[in-house]
């Protein structure tokens, strides 16, 4: 090795000021929005009232506002990570649980649990939804094996079709069993009913996010494709299985707590990919942070637009997410030609 090469090893990695600033911005936004989320609501909880020793305010904060804020942050961060992991596994930027049938499968699982075991605990329901989510992920991965990797648009189309079919089956049975309304009610994304004792399943999602974080390099290597992964000695199947579990558990636990939050897993990793690339070890904190910020912001909007009423979070996320997605798509297109 030459001297020049040695000195270069010791030289600091080239700093990227734009990246540092964006990172700081996401961190600050997370702190500010989380703070705001604690103090927005019908009843008055303000920092002043807390300092004055208002016990009602303190109770409300602990029983409802803190859980809601924690739930939003966990759901946002972990769903975005589920999207990222799925994109690495499929090697396609346009997939996430809700565009691949996974969410629909998990919803079907919820319906099955509701019908067969009406008295089941929420943990039990989540378990059933997770199993269905696993099956859904597996079915999707199986089906797209027939689609060439380079068919970028075909893969999510197949996923959306799959979701459509499963969604239709769910709706049919829900209709026949007169459960359409309750199905609609809880699958409509919202954190309004989150309070102490009703959000803790999201820690399962958080645990899976940690698993993804620990295995970050493996998912990067998986993203290079099966041949590269094999050449590098990675157990391809095992990593795919871990990824499948990560996706299913995150999807199911967010679903039972807050319903469907569309587009998140698609938009956030794509934005991060533009900023810092797809090395999962580097991008995963960004994805988690931006995912949390995104859902926090949308949740605050959902709580304030028609104050004192709330509009469904999925509506806000859907509108903003679809807009961002369109922008990303057009941008990508302009870069490719």
């Amino acid at each position: 090795m030459t001297d020049a090469a040695l000195t270069r090893t010791d030289a600091p990695v080239r700093t990227r000021p734009r990246r540092v600033w964006t990172g700081a911005l996401i961190g600050a936004a997370l702190a500010v929005l989380a703070g705001a989320s604690l103090f927005i609501g019908v009843s008055d909880v303000t920092p002043a009232s807390l300092l004055a020793g208002d016990t009602d305010a303190a109770f409300l904060l602990v029983a409802s506002r803190v859980p809601r804020t924690v739930a939003v942050v966990l759901a946002g961060a972990s769903l975005a990570i589920a999207g990222l992991i799925m994109q690495m596994m499929v090697r396609n930027k346009f997939v996430e649980p809700s565009t691949t049938g996974v969410t629909e499968f998990a919803t079907l699982g919820m319906l099955v649990a509701m019908v067969l075991w009406p008295g089941m605990t929420v943990v039990g329901k989540m378990g059933v939804a997770t199993v269905f989510g696993l099956v859904g992920t597996w079915v999707f991965l199986r089906v797209i094996r027939a689609v060439p990797v380079r068919q970028l648009v075909l893969v999510p189309l197949v996923g959306i079709m799959l979701g459509g079919i499963v969604g239709a089956v769910t709706a049919f049975f829900a209709y026949r069993l007169d459960l359409l309304q309750s199905l609609g009610q809880w699958s409509q994304g919202s954190f309004a009913s989150v309070m102490q004792g009703r959000y803790e399943f999201l820690w399962f999602a958080a645990a899976m996010a940690v698993v993804a974080w620990v295995a970050a390099d493996r998912f990067s290597v998986i993203g290079l494709g099966e041949e590269f992964a094999t050449n590098l000695g990675l157990n391809y199947r095992r990593v795919m299985a871990i990824g499948t579990c990560v996706i299913a558990v995150i999807t199911a636990s967010v679903l039972v707590t807050a319903g469907i939050i569309p587009f998140l897993g698609l938009v956030v990793p794509n934005i991060v990919s533009l900023l810092v690339g797809d090395n999962v070890r580097r991008s995963i904190p960004w994805v988690a942070g931006l995912g949390a910020v995104f859902v926090l912001a949308c949740d605050i909007i959902a709580r304030t637009v028609r104050f004192p009423y709330e509009i469904p979070l999925s509506v806000v996320v859907g509108v903003i997410g679809a807009g961002l997605f369109l922008w990303l798509l057009l941008r990508k297109g302009s870069r490719a030609h």
Partner: peptide, 10 residues
């Protein structure tokens, strides 16, 4: 063919 956005160093 690598679809992921990786740097040469990555």
């Amino acid at each position: 063919h690598i679809a992921a956005r990786l740097t040469v160093h990555d």
